[in-house]
Structure formats: structure tokens, C-alpha cells
Design a protein around this nucleic acid. Structure first.
Lengths: 238, 238
DNA sequence: CGATATATTGACAGGAGTCAAAGAGGGTGG
DNA sequence: CCACCCTCTTTGACTCCTGTCAATATATCG
């Protein structure tokens, strides 16, 4: 029942009744598999359904006019990376898989009907989409104020936090199938420089990213370097 | 009736009935004035009402753990910069005035009641808050992929676009009371460097920012330098 | 086992930051 | 009305973080 991860996430900030949850569960289409490094949707697409990541990793990205790719966010099991497509329809960025991904789909029309009858659920989804926006704000701070190594540390701290909540961190390790080139595109840095920072982190025993796995050597240090500030306190109502 | 600007903005993407609009209008409290360079709310505050900018300029900012201020966005007449506070309550950043600002306030409780009775309006506000998020994504691309001069050009292009819609651009000029130090904090650059870019733009006749006024010398060039891509096509449903 | 993607190195260039000081501008009070 | 002050802008000299280019090593996969 991997859809439970999404429900757990919604329940972290919203008080959903069992009816709300059942209604939502009833309209999730059977899981579909996507291969790694492939698009789920593209910028400009019209969205007719929302997806829920049941397992695997994805990222959202945008290509600037100059042709450079910027990765906007990473997504993990439990996330609904295109919830904003429900009110906005037209996608302003790509959604790509990082690994093999299992997706559940929720048809917009069906969802609209459920939301009309379940205002608490509607509010929960609005909230969820705004938490997404809050992460973007954090990301802006990260890009705008921190050095290269700070940015990387911040990313790792954020991922650890989010994966931890989903129970996907064990023994100071978590799966995260990233390449240095994608890290570069996420952090606004060059591949070469990412490589050098990674090496420095490795020799200092701070962290290691190898073979799809991130190993945290010194999490305290990572949080400090990245100036990581958990959003927890801001994402629950009242 | 400067509240009309907000309504015009909502109507750009949502089909509001006159009833919807009247309901909304009925709960806007009389305008209040805020002096320049002062806080409207602070990070950590609990939000009990939404504000609408009736006139003037404001910005949202966040201070990183390291103590550096990052400006997240600028706001103009017609904007509701804390709409996300309705579902999320706890503010994750500051809202500051740039100039004298006239604000209308909408009490959350009253708004909730109206939204329950006007689902189209509720949807419009959700949409509005997601357009805000889309601007943040654009901003991430700006910070992550562009050079210093590109970033500045992008900011000016975005402002021109948004102010233009509100009818606040005339003769290739618009009011925008910014200091170089704030520009630096918005673009993730140092004041000194901002100053040099500004001078380069000035001597090349591209643009000038002086005494609270931005003068566009060569808008084509600005759009090109900034790789500006209007969001227009993404913000209307279907 | 070859082929392709990814990671690593080295040398060098350059954009952007820092520090410190000097000008300008705008507001205020005597 | 002018002197003074405070903030904002401008300059110069210097540093250094990060990017670029190009080559090599290492993984990964069919």
C-alpha cells in the first residue's frame, strides 16, 4: 500500500477523516512504472491528472532561454509533484524520473468531484501545494546566499530530512541515484566544481555520494555547513 | 477603488461572477498605511488575515542561518503577498515595505466563510497562490543559471511585465524604489558588483535605475540578456 | 568486452567578492 | 537657508571562488 506514504504526509499537516482518506484512495489508478531518466511530463503539457510517487525518485526541471537546465526540486515516495497542475493545468516545467519510478495517478475530474464533497481534503491539498512553494523559497535562499559547499550540504540535509520522515534513511545512508552533472544543474554550479567539493567532503569524512547512495559521515557538520533549518514549524496550521 | 487591481488580477486567470467579486469586496477592511522600510509581518508570525497591496511596493525576505538576507520576491499593487498564510498560518519569511504602502486587510475567518460559499473564488485564490509559486520557480532558474547582468536584466523584465499589466509603466519608465543593496540581496550578488553592472547598463543605454525610477533604454536587449520568458501562457487554466 | 556515460585531474581564465575609502544625495534641525 | 549627518553610491586594488577546456581514468551496461 505505498499510497499510504502520501496519506501520511497529508496527515502531518491536515486533520483528515477516514472518509476523506477513503475517498482519495478510491480514485487512485493502479500503479504504473516509468523507466529511469525519462519524462513524466514536459513543460507546456496540459495536465489532466495528478501523480503520486509510490516509489523511486524524480526531479522537476526547467531549461532557461540560454539552454541551461536548472533542476528545481527532487521528489521522493509520497510526493505529489504536479499537484499545482490541478488549478493551473499548463505545466511550466518538466518532471523527469531519476530512477525507476512507480506512479499512482489521480484523474483531475474525479479529484474535483471528491474535493467538492470533502472541503477538508481540498484544504489539505492546497496546503500541500503551498509547502511545495515554501521549499522553493528555501531553495532560493540556498542558491542566493550560500557558497558551493554550503549549497550541497543544504541539499543533503533537506533530503535526509524528507527521506527520514518517509522512513527511507537507515544507518546514516539513503538511496539517492544522482549524477554529479545533475547535482551541478540543481545547485547552479559546474560539474567540475561539484566533483571537487564532493572529494573534499569525502576526505573530510563529512559525506559521500557513491553508486546511488548518500552516506552521511558527520550530519551535524552538514547541517551547519548548509545552514539547514527544518521547515517543520511552518508547515502545520495554527 | 484600488482593490480593483487585485480583482483584475484574479479575473485574468479565473472566471469570477459578480457575486464572487462582491462577496470578496465586502470583507476587505479599510486601507491602512505603512511607512517605507518597515515590516508588515515577520518570519514566525501567525497569520490571522491576508493583505492586499493597494498602492506602493513591498518585498518578501528571509535571513539565512549565516545571517545573510535573501529577498525572495517583490510585490506591487494588486498583489496578495501572504495568501499562503490562509492555509499555512505560520509565516516562513518577512514581508517588508519598500515604499509607503497602502494595504487592505481580509480577515481569515471572514474569508473562510466566503470561500465555503463560493467555491469558484476558493479555486481562484488557490490558483493565485500557485502563480506565486511559479514565479519562485522562475526565480530559481534566474539565480541558478544566469550571470550577474542576466539576473538583473531578468528582474527588470519581470517587473516591467507585472507593472505593465497593472498600468504602472509609462514612457519606458516605472517607479521602483530600490537601493543597490537590496538589489544585491535579491540577486545573490554583492553591492559593489551590482553597482558596476548598473553602470555598464547605463553607459550602454540598456537601462537606468535612479531615484526610485527604472528607465528602460533598450527593452529588447533587456529581455534577451535576462532570457525573460513571460509566464502568461502557463497561468490561465486550460 | 567494447561502448558510452560518468567521474576525475590539471592548467588556466575570469567573474564576483572583499576591504576600505571617498563622493553624492537627501533630509533635518538650528 | 545652510550646515551637518546619514545613507546610498561609486572607485580602486586585490583576492579567490568557480567556470572552462581538454584529457584521462573509471563505471556501467548490453
Amino acid at each position: 500500500m505505498p499510497i499510504e506514504m502520501m496519506i501520511r504526509k497529508l496527515r502531518q499537516h491536515s486533520d483528515l477523516s477516514n472518509e476523506d482518506v477513503e475517498a482519495l484512495r478510491s480514485i487512485v489508478a493502479p500503479a504504473r512504472n516509468f523507466p529511469e531518466d525519462s519524462p513524466i511530463f514536459r513543460e507546456g503539457d496540459l495536465s489532466t491528472r495528478c501523480c503520486v510517487i509510490l516509489s523511486g525518485f524524480a526531479y522537476r526541471s526547467k531549461v532557461s532561454e540560454e539552454g541551461k537546465r536548472q533542476i528545481l526540486s527532487f521528489h521522493i515516495a509520497g510526493d505529489m509533484p504536479d499537484l499545482h497542475g490541478l488549478p493551473l493545468k499548463r505545466m511550466d516545467h518538466d518532471l523527469m524520473t531519476l530512477s525507476k519510478v512507480e506512479l499512482g495517478f489521480i484523474d483531475h475530474d474525479a479529484l474535483e468531484r471528491i474535493l467538492d464533497a470533502h472541503p477538508v481534503l481540498a484544504r489539505a491539498l492546497w496546503r500541500e501545494s503551498l509547502i511545495d512553494a515554501a521549499l522553493f523559497r528555501q531553495w532560493i535562499v540556498n542558491l542566493g546566499t550560500r557558497s558551493a559547499s554550503g549549497r550541497l550540504a543544504y541539499l543533503v540535509a533537506e533530503l535526509r530530512q524528507r527521506l527520514g520522515v518517509m522512513g527511507l534513511v537507515a544507518n546514516d545512508q539513503f538511496k539517492f541515484p544522482i549524477t554529479q552533472s545533475k547535482l551541478a544543474d540543481a545547485l547552479g554550479l559546474s560539474v567540475v566544481h561539484i566533483n571537487r567539493i564532493l572529494q573534499a567532503f569525502r576526505t573530510q569524512g563529512i559525506l559521500d555520494i557513491k553508486r546511488q547512495v548518500v552516506t552521511l559521515g558527520d550530519f551535524e557538520k552538514i547541517v551547519q555547513l548548509g545552514g539547514f533549518d527544518s521547515l517543520e514549524d511552518y508547515t502545520s496550521p495554527e
